[in-house]
């Protein structure tokens, strides 16, 4: 029982970080219908940028983390302006290929700058521990869960209530109508990319604090797919719930099934769950069905 709870709680923590990263993916898909295959590489770049500021430049976390976010936001704006905006109105498959190319460029640059060895991530969070139901939760997991949770709530409120949030939802819902009431949809797209890059970077930092960072961090981008497809590609609450489910599922299958069948179950389980859920609910858990008026 204790083992189960341990896995459950760390799974929730991991899952909330997945949810945060997936949020960026959903945001881009929702407003631009682009499937961003570079989301994982944005995580990678974010984590290594933080590493560079913290370990290589020796800055304190209070300075390094905001700087990392700023770099990510600038990267997001730049990518949108240089690569995606010229692709407006081009076929979806062409745009997807652009994001694949972007993933390659980002990964290659990271490898060129930081090399392909494992890097220990410095301790950035004050020691913190909590015992829940007799299970001790390690500090980095607790911080990860806490920060990701706060960000998810903040973004949900932002989309729900702020003027920009309404504009982003409007542009995502009906682009021509958004243009007709004076919403500058290009700025909405740019903002989507900036937010996506920022949450990816933050996710990278939180994952780094839990584990070491290396060049395989970009593979998290693949894990985003079960998360978002599970929740429904265009639903933010769906991404949050999907993230939690995948995080927990991964941990539980890793803990309980893996000892019986040998390695690899942890990596496969999310995709098995994905297939099963899509058989029952093709729109995902929260995906939009077309509204039909009767």
């Amino acid at each position: 029982m204790r083992f189960f709870l341990q896995l459950l709680v760390t799974g929730v923590a991991l899952g909330s970080i997945y949810a945060l990263i997936a949020l960026g993916f959903v945001l881009i898909y929702k407003s631009t219908r682009i499937i961003n295959f570079a989301q994982g590489e944005l995580v990678l770049i974010g984590a290594f940028t933080a590493f560079a500021f913290l370990s290589q430049a020796g800055l304190p976390p209070a300075l390094a983390l905001p700087l990392t976010i700023v770099v990510a936001v600038v990267l997001g704006f730049t990518v949108e302006r240089l690569l995606l905006r010229p692709m407006l109105g081009e076929p979806v498959i062409a745009v997807i290929m652009v994001t694949l190319g972007l993933a390659g460029i980002l990964k290659g640059s990271a490898r060129a700058i930081w090399g392909s060895v494992n890097r220990p991530f410095p301790d950035i969070f004050p020691a913190l521990s909590l015992t829940l139901f007799g299970v001790g939760i390690p500090g980095p997991f607790l911080w990860g869960c806490l920060i990701a949770g706060v960000c998810l709530v903040a973004f949900t409120l932002f989309f729900r209530f702020s003027g920009w949030g309404v504009m982003m939802r409007a542009a995502a819902n009906h682009q021509a109508a958004a243009l007709s009431v004076g919403i500058d949809v290009r700025r909405v797209f740019a903002l989507s990319w900036a937010i996506a890059a920022a949450v990816a970077a933050l996710g990278g930092v939180l994952l780094g604090a839990i584990n070491v960072i290396d060049m395989n961090l970009g593979a998290i981008g693949l894990k985003v797919f079960p998360v978002v497809i599970l929740g429904g590609l265009d639903s933010i609450p769906g991404a949050i719930l999907g993230g939690l489910i995948i995080g927990v599922l991964e941990n539980l299958s890793g803990g309980f099934i893996e000892p019986w069948v040998g390695g690899g179950v942890k990596a496969v389980a999310p995709f098995v769950a994905l297939l099963l859920i899509l058989l029952i609910r093709p729109y995902g858990l929260f995906g939009t069905r077309e509204i039909e008026r009767l």
Binding site: S162, W164, V166, M167, A170, N173, A177, S180
Partner: peptide, 27 residues
């Protein structure tokens, strides 16, 4: 006002209206 009523069909009536405030700083 476009032909064929381009409402934001997933948004509430109030959010539809608020979207019209975009040009004045998002409302």
């Amino acid at each position: 006002v476009m032909e064929g009523r381009g409402v934001f069909d997933e948004l509430t009536v109030e959010d539809n209206l608020r979207a019209g405030l975009a040009v004045r700083g998002g409302g």
